[in-house]
């Protein structure tokens, strides 16, 4: 019995290990290609490890495009979207969980219904709205439409509702205003949820492609994924510089992930958040 158990255990371990290797292979191959000298990239059969590590590929990729500008855009846009979403969601979730007002149920149901509409549908009218505002190709167009999320409002409302009303009543009796209560009691007590929402929003904004592609039309406004897609289509691009460029986009998210792995995974597991 014991031997059978151990056998089962090692079989499942081997399956998992092979699976992990297959899943990680594109990343491994990306890294290996990114440091290869140009004459070793197109060898057949391929050479797994480069004879020398060519870090210049990163320099080439960096200089082939105004990388600094793209990086700055991506960071700025992602941070603004994340901060905006968290702020608006906290405020709205407070109203839904702690305040009484007419039409609350109807409004809430309306919002949940809206959640089902695929965002791809909204692209055309939103593009028109923004062009009427004269906002096409601006940070406003990249940021503002994404500064709230109904799903986050919903999650935070659930979270705020788990905190006993007695706290709220006691705080009110002691002369604490709603706004103070929200920021000094509710928000600190809900940090894990807020954190999960924020980190996934950041990752998603960082990776966003279709929207930035549509609302930007000059080099200066592009974010990294849009720039990478353009770069990959330019003639004469070598795979090693292309992989170096790709790697530079993934790297910040990789590091964030290594740093906050447990929080991210727990947050996703608890809430089903997709970002």
């Amino acid at each position: 019995m014991k031997i059978r158990n151990r056998l089962k255990h090692s079989v499942s371990f081997i399956v998992l290990a092979i699976g992990a290797l297959v899943v990680a292979l594109p990343f491994i191959w990306m890294i290996l290609t990114a440091v290869k000298p140009s004459n070793e990239v197109l060898l057949m059969p391929p050479k797994w490890f480069p004879s020398t590590l060519v870090w210049e590929n990163f320099v080439t990729a960096y200089h082939a495009a105004p990388f600094k500008q793209y990086l700055a855009n991506s960071i700025f846009v992602s941070i603004c979207i994340t901060a905006g979403e968290i702020a608006t969601a906290i405020l709205a979730a407070f109203a839904f969980s702690h305040l009484k007002f007419r039409g609350k149920q109807a409004l809430f149901i309306g919002l949940i219904g809206t959640m089902m509409v695929p965002s791809e549908i909204l692209i055309i009218p939103n593009y028109m709205t923004l062009s009427h505002f004269g906002w096409i190709n601006s940070y406003k167009a990249l940021i503002l439409p994404w500064c709230t999320s109904i799903f986050s409002i919903f999650l935070l409302r659930q979270q705020f509702s788990t905190i006993p009303v007695a706290y709220y009543k006691a705080a009110r009796l002691d002369g604490c205003s709603d706004f103070q209560y929200l920021w000094t009691i509710l928000v600190p007590m809900s940090m894990p949820t807020i954190f999960s929402i924020g980190i996934l929003k950041f990752i998603n904004s960082w990776n966003a492609y279709l929207w930035p592609l549509i609302v930007t039309n000059t080099v200066e406004m592009r974010t990294l994924p849009v720039a990478l897609a353009v770069f990959s289509n330019e003639g004469g691009v070598h795979y090693n510089t292309l992989m170096a460029f790709s790697l530079m986009i993934i790297l910040p998210i990789f590091m964030l992930y290594l740093l906050l792995k447990q929080q991210i995974i727990k947050g996703v597991g608890r809430t089903g958040l997709k970002g």
Binding site: A20, W29, P46, I203, P225, M243
Partner: peptide, 27 residues
């Protein structure tokens, strides 16, 4: 968990480019 989770958080553009490189017919 962390290895299997990696593709989920990486940019679709980046990983699509790696896939098309890996699926290149000749190289």
């Amino acid at each position: 968990q962390s290895v299997y989770f990696l593709p989920f958080i990486t940019s679709t553009v980046s990983v699509s480019i790696v896939w098309s490189w890996m699926l290149n017919k000749d190289f």
